[in-house]
């Protein structure tokens, strides 16, 4: 019997959509029983949201002052304590899950599948390697507990039509205090979240300055889109690090992706391959972005963008 525990990602009392996508992935394993663990200092609000996800049987509320911030070193021993009842442990392949799950796996003495993008049975997974330039199908040894992070761009969010039971669980493990949260910088804006936005406008090095990058924000606002950036634009200081799309940034799958002044290095393309429609605006007709774009427009962004604003 497949029993899956999903570690919820959340912040400020809200369940992150990445958790819903992880539930969808888990639900593809036929006959799997799915539980969600919510680690927090106060977990009730998030537990209530998690209990509404279709396919979830139980939500475990694990409350402790030490869980006020998602520190991998603090969470990991507690997750290990819960793990004995489960065959699989999943978390989203966001920075939250990428930080945490290998630590959990090593404490359990097992390996991990990173970035599962498809499931072909309880122990067969497909994942990207080489920046998404190859896909590997892996069979996991069924005798071991299976730890995996789930590539959120590959799954739809689970519906909120469920009605799981909520149980409080206490932890006996000694939690380390060698790692302490200090601060978090957060950009506050009303724009759609890059990882879940249906439309994304992204800018590259060709913008030329942080000031010019505002053109990207303007177009995004007009389209109700999230904003992304290439590594070159982030390295140059035009855009914040959390906007980076690609192998080492965010992997996204919007309905519409508009790449402005982005040449399309393979590391960037891996982050957008799952987008439904890719539009490229670039003055270099040889730019590799045109190899993956559904619609290409060769032209200078500084004249194309004002025109585009007029016609939208």
């Amino acid at each position: 019997m497949t029993r899956i525990l999903i570690i919820a990602e959340h912040a400020h009392g809200k369940l992150n959509i990445s958790t819903r996508k992880t539930v969808s992935c888990a639900a593809q394993i036929i006959g799997a029983e799915i539980d969600i663990a919510v680690f927090a200092d106060q977990a009730s609000d998030v537990a209530t949201q998690a209990a509404q996800l279709a396919g979830v049987k139980r939500v475990l509320k694990v409350e402790h002052p030490a869980f006020a911030h998602a520190l991998a070193a603090t969470y990991a021993p507690a997750i290990v304590e819960l793990a004995s009842n489960y065959t699989h442990l999943f978390a989203p392949s966001t920075t939250f899950g990428k930080d945490l799950m290998p630590r959990v796996a090593a404490l359990l003495g097992v390996g991990q599948i990173s970035d599962a993008m498809a499931i072909e049975g309880s122990h067969r997974f497909v994942r990207p390697i080489y920046a998404g330039n190859a896909m590997v199908t892996l069979d996991a040894e069924p005798g071991h507990k299976l730890v995996a992070t789930i590539r959120t761009a590959s799954f739809q969010p689970a519906a909120t039509t469920g009605n799981a039971s909520i149980e409080s669980v206490s932890i006996a493990a000694t939690l380390p205090n060698h790692t302490r949260f200090i601060s978090h910088s957060e950009e506050h804006n009303d724009r759609p979240d890059l990882q879940s936005a249906a439309r994304v406008v992204a800018g590259g090095r060709a913008l030329g300055s942080a000031e010019n990058f505002n053109l990207i924000y303007q177009l995004a606002d007009q389209l109700g889109a999230g904003v992304g950036a290439s590594r070159a634009a982030v390295d140059a200081g035009y855009a914040a690090n959390e906007l980076q799309v690609g192998q080492t940034g965010k992997i996204i799958a919007p309905d519409l992706y508009i790449a402005v002044g982005i040449s399309g290095a393979i590391q960037h393309l891996t982050g957008i391959k799952d987008a439904r429609t890719i539009v490229a605006i670039n003055k270099d007709p040889e730019a590799p972005i045109f190899d993956v774009a559904d619609i290409g427009l060769v032209g200078d962004l500084f004249s194309v963008l004002p025109e585009l604003a007029k016609h939208l």
């Binding site: 097992v110 390996g111 599948i113 067969r124 990207p128 390697i129 998404g132 330039n133 190859a134 896909m135 590997v136 199908t137 892996l138 069979d139 996991a140 040894e141 071991h144 391959k273 890719i278 045109f290 190899d291 993956v292 774009a293 559904d294 619609i295 290409g296 427009l297 060769v298």
Partner: peptide
């Protein structure tokens, strides 16, 4: 030795787009 490679494949290619 928990994982065995079954197969490695190139990613599905995107169809060539159009220029406007």
């Amino acid at each position: 030795q928990q994982f065995k490679t079954v197969n490695v494949a190139p990613p599905p290619a995107r169809q060539k787009g159009v220029l406007v």
